[in-house]
Design a binder for these strands. Sequence first.
RNA 1: GGGGGCGUGGUGUAGCCUGGUUAACACACCUGCCUGUCACGCAGGAGACCGCGGGUUCAACUCCCGUCGCUCCCGCCA
Length: 446
Amino acid sequence: MKALSTSLPRTLIKDIRKAVGSEAKVQGWVKTIRDQKKMQFLLVRDHTGVVQATVERSAAKASINELIAGLTRESAISVIGTVVENPIVKTGGVEILIRELIVESRADGLIPIDPDGPVEPNSEVRLNWRFLDLRRPEIALIFQVQTAFEHAMREYWIKEGFLEIHSPKLMGSPSEGGAEVFPFEYFGRTAYLAQSPQFYKQMAMAAGFDRVFEIGPVFRADPSFTARHATEFTGLDMEMSWIDSHEDVMAFEERWLAYSLEQVRQEYGDPIRETFGIEVSVPAVPFPRVPMQEAREIIAGKGHVIPLERGDLDPPGERLIAEYAMERFGHEFVFVTDYPVDVRPFYHMRYVDTPHITKSFDLLWRGIEVTTGAQREHRYDVLVAQAREKGLSLEPIQFYLDFFKYGCPPHGGFGAGLARMLMVLLNQSNIREVTFLFRGPTRLHP
RNA sequence: GGGGGCGUGGUGUAGCCUGGUUAACACACCUGCCUGUCACGCAGGAGACCGCGGGUUCAACUCCCGUCGCUCCCGCCA
């Protein structure tokens, strides 16, 4: 009998209704125990739903009654029994009449955080016990959406002829100079964690790969204490050859995003609305574009003056330009273009007639910066001059500069943050909510 | 790195401003009861040296100083 039971295939709770009238095996966690005098009720949760399992107290069921009496919430169990229709039952109108119950792993009675509790513990406790926190069904949805979003992005890239690359994360020199890289000991010398695949995706252009993308980890040693920064996150990077300007890159990105959001909307639009109360809207193409100089004027017109010496927008400025894009174009996205050279890296291409301005852009989504992109400087002499002007020493980046010595096509690309986009998409106030395991300046465990 | 806020049973909070009872409440936990529950209910119980260190005071969870941790904003960025 035991052998027969265990050979029964598992039924996911979302499919339990199809098993009405026959025996089924359900496996999951104990959400609730209601142990009464004549009846015992369990609510069992798996990653697809919740179902009630029931057994009467009787001599014939004594061993099961005993097990349930000693059971704890959040224990991992297998339940085998007949699935019956019962309209009174609030969890879907069906229940399982327990024939066999196996306690696979008993949970300690005192749980540090309760996945079914009425209130969320504070974020520190939740991050300490992230595996319990992640049992909450609404959190599972976040990662289902991430999977669909990422899959759609990859699918679109591949459809458009991009190659997927995996560039090294161990580097012999910091890719852009500066203090924001993590150094570490590497067989007696210093190496660095990659803070972007920038140099390597450009190498792929010099190699004639034409178009590449990478989805992978990037590391930033910034001691940033905000709701949208992490020291390790998943970067979405792409680079494309034979472009005329950064406009080609923006035109690609907006189509890529519109496609990916359409896929997410189709697959998860309903649960996202129910769980997070937000409508997944597929953005119209093209997105609005606002050059930096004009953006400053618009923001000033809204009563916020960004200091002249500051080349970039500040957070209030970002919110105001997003507000403008919504008022003027009804759009959640806005490209801010043409950043001054002093706030951009040396490899961004500059305009011929206005050389203090780069052919670059940031993409803001509801006021949050989610992308930086540009046309790259592909002419060796110009690139070297720009690196010198920024005060970089050429020796550590000579391997990179060499990419441009033997025929490199004009090209450009962008880098985006997966979690940041997910945070905006699902209307979450903190990047930690949408990160499987967050890494920040003071967070290395679990 | 600069500024603000918060640290009280397993979890979330109240109490602190205006020092003075056994530090309260909800959820969770334990025991018993309960004819199908469904946020089950009822009765009882255990569980907190109030982040840490120092100071003021007859007396400190409460006021002051320091320190550590967390958090938000700014800077930086995706």
